[in-house]
Design a protein around this nucleic acid. Structure first.
Lengths: 193, 193
DNA sequence: ACTTATTTATGATCTAGGTCATGTTTGAGG
DNA sequence: CCTCAAACATGACCTAGATCATAAATAAGT
């Protein structure tokens, strides 16, 4: 989906400063959100306050459709991880996009399929595998996004929040994986070989 | 999607006896499967042999699209939970359905959204909540499908395989939940009040 | 109504990973 | 080049739930 097209259609752009909340659990969904610039994270928080990162969305991506389309209140917070500009598209306009925008519905189907794939993978990890395996799977998944030589700009706390582990476990796990040569780390940062 | 329509189009129906495997991990996806009758379960198996039920699909439903559309090898086994009749629709025909069948693409988008919603909920549970909470969430989710007075036809082992717990933990957990009045159980079966 | 297989149940351990406490290192802002 | 906050690190526990063993209760087939 081309963001500029949305702007041309006259849809309003809104700025969300870093750490501002776009929506929170319990709210009734009204929009699909297209990111013009910036980055957001989708986070669920347990009764005891433990955070879990359900997903991260970057410039050019959109989020919030599943809740809107299934008409169920949000389960998660969505929070700007840095200053972001976001276009809110209401239900009616979103349906128009699906109907009139060539290829958009197919693109959306592929996109949802991809997310489903990621979640299935993580479910299997969380349900069945132990800490180090989980961690390695997560790291390898994140590494697919970057080029060799670059390093993952992700903290241990973030890895913990994505894998359902605790920081200390991630720290010890990474040390072990690095020792076994399963990951390479330079100055604490994971680098793609 | 109307199954009869697919049969009218001349697509072939195949019978899968109980416990037969429709596809397994690593295979390259070629079809989307529509269930004319019966029921299948989608299961991932960890390195140590632990099974996790990713989902259950029943008469009238379809499965296998995400892997086909993202062109990635299957992660899971799909196994007939009872004698089933299934129509395999190849990629080309599936795309035709999306393009030509009115409402089908919208229905598919809603369907994928629903599955995503379920997986997000389970991810949060597996990542953050403890055994009894997980169990209760799963049971309540399954109860939404049935009428008051009916009981869940699900074994404790199946509940274990859906929540990532072990049978013993499910057994003890259910006893506790029943004691607290959070679930009602008659002759070992969970019944909807 | 038997016989056999599956499911449920319960007690006794064991352990991975959480929790807690207390540093040390790194890096951004003045 | 300092300062201060965030990120990383490590040791010492502790506990939820896994594991193991064994048996009772249902269900299913003949």
């Amino acid at each position: 989906m081309n963001i500029q097209k949305l702007i041309d259609k006259g849809l309003k752009l809104k700025s969300y400063p870093k750490d501002s909340v776009i929506y929170e659990p319990g709210m009734q969904p009204r929009y699909v959100y297209f990111i013009k610039s910036g980055e957001v994270r989708m986070v669920t928080v347990s009764d005891e306050g433990k955070e879990f990162i359900q997903g991260v969305f970057k410039t050019g991506q959109y989020f919030g459709e599943p809740a809107l389309l299934t008409d169920r209140p949000y389960l998660a917070f969505t929070i700007a991880s840095r200053d972001s500009q976001i276009i809110s598209v209401n239900k009616e306009d979103f349906f128009k996009l699906i109907e009139n925008e060539p290829n958009f519905s197919m693109e959306l189907i592929r996109n949802l399929s991809n997310r489903l794939f990621y979640k299935s993978m993580m479910l299997e990890e969380l349900a069945s595998e132990k800490a180090d395996h989980r961690l390695l799977t997560m790291i390898n998944y994140l590494l697919t996004d970057i080029k060799a030589g670059e390093n993952l700009r992700v903290t241990r706390q973030e890895l913990a929040d994505m894998t359902g582990l605790r920081v200390e476990t991630v720290i010890r796990g990474m040390k072990l994986l690095a020792g076994k040569g399963l990951i390479k780390t330079v100055k604490g940062k994971i680098v793609k070989v």
